[in-house]
């Protein structure tokens, strides 16, 4: 646990989530992991702005797939293009994912803090191994 906790500690993360309450819970959970939530976006427009901002020095991003009817894929594409590892959180489950992002680690809502932590660790670890 110590090594895992240490591995997420201080990571600068972007949260893209249109449900305010869910976004706030994510913040609470991530802060509990010792992460630094550097941006929370509820729209594709704002999310793209964060994703393009290199000054944020993002270590990863947690993206909701559906943002009030809009799909999050442009943000996901921007981040993966930049080499920023991402994970999806979605209420649609895995089958709702676009085939080109089917390999992205995905968490189905609602999820436990432990599940999120485990997913982030594996996603970021697999990223670091590259």
């Amino acid at each position: 646990m110590m090594t895992q906790a240490a591995s997420l500690h201080g990571l600068r993360l972007l949260v893209v989530e249109d449900e305010t309450l869910v976004a706030m819970m994510l913040e609470v959970m991530l802060e509990g992991f010792g992460c630094d939530v550097v941006g929370v976006a509820g729209t594709v427009k704002r999310g793209l702005a964060y994703a393009s901002d290199e000054s944020l020095n993002l270590d990863g991003a947690i993206l909701d797939v559906n943002l009030g009817g809009e799909e999050v894929y442009p943000i996901a594409q921007r981040l993966t293009d930049r080499g920023v590892p991402i994970v999806f959180c979605t209420g649609y489950g895995l089958k709702g994912l676009s085939p080109s992002f089917a390999h992205i680690p995905t968490l189905a809502k609602p999820y436990l803090a432990e599940d999120l932590e485990g997913l982030l660790l594996s996603a970021l670890a697999s990223h670091r191994s590259h």
Binding site: V22, V28, T90, G91, G93, K109, P110
Partner: peptide, 21 residues
């Protein structure tokens, strides 16, 4: 059905968020 499922899941996530906070 997808939308309903999505809403239910989001609502559960919302409830979860309220509980946690």
């Amino acid at each position: 059905l997808d939308e309903l499922n999505h809403r239910v899941k989001n609502t559960l996530a919302t409830v979860q968020s309220i509980a946690v906070q």
